[in-house]
Design a protein around this nucleic acid. Sequence first.
DNA 1: CTGAAAGCGCTTACAG
DNA 2: CTGAAAGCGCTTACAG
Lengths: 342, 342
Amino acid sequence: MAQNGGTPTLDQVAKLAGVSKATASRAINGRSKVSAKAQTAVDNAVRALGYTPNAAARSLVTRRTGSVALIVPESDERIFSDPFFARMLHLVARALREHDLQLVLLIAQPGDEEERLLQYLRGRYVDGAIVASHHRADRLAEHLSDLGLPCVFIGRPWIGAERVSYVDSDNAAAAGHAVRVLLEAGRRRIATIAGPRDMRAGHDRLDGWRRELVAAGLDADLVAYGDFTEESGAKACAELLEAAGDPGGVDGIFAASDLMAQGAMRELAARGLRVPEDVAIVGYDDLGVAERTDPPLTTLHNPIGQMVTEALRLLTEAIDAGGTGAPRRVIFVPELVRRASV
Amino acid sequence: MAQNGGTPTLDQVAKLAGVSKATASRAINGRSKVSAKAQTAVDNAVRALGYTPNAAARSLVTRRTGSVALIVPESDERIFSDPFFARMLHLVARALREHDLQLVLLIAQPGDEEERLLQYLRGRYVDGAIVASHHRADRLAEHLSDLGLPCVFIGRPWIGAERVSYVDSDNAAAAGHAVRVLLEAGRRRIATIAGPRDMRAGHDRLDGWRRELVAAGLDADLVAYGDFTEESGAKACAELLEAAGDPGGVDGIFAASDLMAQGAMRELAARGLRVPEDVAIVGYDDLGVAERTDPPLTTLHNPIGQMVTEALRLLTEAIDAGGTGAPRRVIFVPELVRRASV
DNA sequence: CTGAAAGCGCTTACAG
DNA sequence: CTGAAAGCGCTTACAG
């Protein structure tokens, strides 16, 4: 179809339909009134020619691209197999589809590639951006705010949070909740397997654990760090057990991700420790693996679906408002899901 | 910087530099000769104004967007946490970065969303496309070929393969190799845990397993299907063991992914069967999990890095050639990695 | 090496 | 409701 002299243009459609380019354009975009006759003629011409508007020409005048960037300032390949990230990517992709927007995935190693990322964004290839998985050192919030590009962060940025919109969940409160559940189960030596220190979720969950223990008049000394993976959870659990010394030195664990909780359970099993009898354990995320552990994991439900939906609402509203308007934020409270590990 | 009256344009740069738009454009793109004096003046003006070329305007005339689509015709969310896919996505992202191309991720459920995908592609938002994880029913190869958009498939398409470029690995030969290794280890009741029947890799590996057994004069009757996940591998292994009846009814397994092999090993362990003494096992992919199983897994190395590199080479060459040129293809042969499961 | 001009393919006031 | 015209911001023959 598009064979007769390259890709068909609006001009050819208009000629074939016997109307002006203006009318053809209006018929195609369907935002202004067009006579039924003209509409039919244009529709037929479009079909006959296999016409699709040229995106560049259109966005040159509309100043809209119909694309949104998902920015992942992450150098580590593992990000892609992380179930939390995988789920988020999937949800973002689906939500964008519903808004008729395209997803441009921008992966930028922190550091030297940041300038290149900003350069791309300045070129107005996209109408807005969602930023996920940012780290402590990122200055993305400031830079995006400088650009004036509509954006919303998933997770409160470390730096420049006051200048941008974001959605987040109350990681600290949720961690506190986890600790209370362990306390109510009679545990007194409650350790934590924390996430990366340079990630918001890692930092805040650790903080919530610590505050709750202190509030209960207990020591907050049993900490080991992981990177949210199962492997690291097993390793951290081993460290904890060794640091605590005698059996019973740890009787409860709050793990900052279900995957790390799973690793910890594997390590406990290997040492002949029973869950929850010897060590009770609470995870975080509730992304499917929590149902499949043995025993099934009591955990905090990370409301990622709601966060993504809300992030997209904030973003599309900011885009429609032309990038003006004050930063907005929405915070969710993760709910406890009781299973059998406490 | 861009505050003084919106985003700066080439015109403003030219004025400030005291040259024409043409010269400014040439200085910025650096493909034609420009006097040192003009170059400096333009460079300074660009810096002073914080100028970045408008992508839409540029691509309207150059007919290049600097973007490449990664098409994933997959409705299933799990695709994102599949380590093979995660690795491919990471490698594609990195390779595109090296070519100074942007990654547009297009996820299209098969069926009703295909028309929408093609519509997008027709709009020339991207210069070319890489297609991954396609299924039997996809007619993408034909449609992309009709569009005349440069594209390369990762994995030979089921339909229309003769019309497009692709990279692939010889899944059948590799599966045959796996079977020979098991035969050489004296195994005679060799089962397979196959991948999805509607995916190239699943189909071809099953085929290779079958041919090799038949060539050896053995029955190819012990087949169970999984979906490449660990869960499904465990389940398939259980089916196999039950179908085979008596202990020793299965003494070797070729699993079409390491993850399924891992699940199978878990199932074997749960039944008190030793690897490799009772059941020898060969996996597929060699993506990291193969090193961490107990015992470490003998497997076929899926040359995904090479496939991605080659796919991008074919794609950029096709783009540079203006989308003309015959389809090309490159096939890799996976190598066996001997560890301890056979 | 440089500039004036045309043109890429659209959309959108403006006037009718 | 419709059309002629201007204009979005670039690049690139063409002539000098």
